[in-house]
Amino acid sequence: MGWVEVTTGFLSATIAMGTVLLLACIGEILTEKSGVLNLGLEGMMIVGAVFAFIVVQTTGNLVLAIAASLLAGALMGLIHAFITVTLKASQVVSGLALTIFGVGLANFLGQNYVGTVRVASLQAIPIPLLSEIPIIGEALFNQSILVYVSILLVPISWILIYRTRAGLKLRAVGENPSSADSLGINVFATRYIYTLIGGALTGLAGAYLSIGFNSSWMDSITGGQGWIAVALVIFATWNPIKAMLGSYLFGFILILGLRLQAFGIEIPEMLFTMLPYIFTIVVLIFSTGKFGKNSKIKQREPGSLGTPYDREARH
């Protein structure tokens, strides 16, 4: 195999791998920007995956499958929002419950489909002209629609957060819900909306896994990528553009680990896979807490992240 093909194949796989992370990560960035911590990504991702797969197997319709994954993710997000925003219960425990429930539900529903090959898959859609560019063209512009969607979401979400009025409200709710409330912004509605959007996007990430990637269904198909997405949000300091770079970086590391084995190089795949988690801890140390006081304002975590909002709570 010539090095051109190798590199192209590498990049292509990296981007595909990174797309799963990117979709979930952008979803979680939006959710966390509103002040809600969602640790249920692993559960939402896998639920989206299983619904997409089942719909594809039963109807053969890919559009319906994608819609199903969005809906499933959004419903999971709704449960989380209800428990944490309306009932004001612990966001950490609710997220964990969603993960346990989601993984269980997906493995439960997917039981009959284990090993069955997919009826239809997302095809690669080459973009004319751009996909002719050597190496990069093939890698970047000959991917499935979900990859393009994920790439487009980066500028869209960035503009939404930083250049629109809605984004200003979103950030206000996440930084200081009490202030936002006193200005008449509906804190509850905002948190609900962005938690649902986050859930939907995470479900979509799952769909890409099950109908765009692997050819068949297997137990625990997400393999911890939901957790990596949680870590990615911090690594990217809640910035969609950094999230894209981070997703591809982490995707690259994961692919590298897999490919190195094929080359007979003895560097253990596992140690590579650890890197994203180690990076995240390092970033967390330097951007929050004591060191965080010196970090740039734009990079800090949303002020109210993890705390339920109660209007009549006495300060």
Binding site: I79, L87, K88, V93, S94, F101, G104, L105, N107, F108
Partner: peptide, 21 residues
Amino acid sequence: PAAISAVIQGIILFCVLAFDF
């Protein structure tokens, strides 16, 4: 499938959280 126990665990936890209020 054995996964039903995880589903039930999740349901129990949700209910406990929800009714904690």
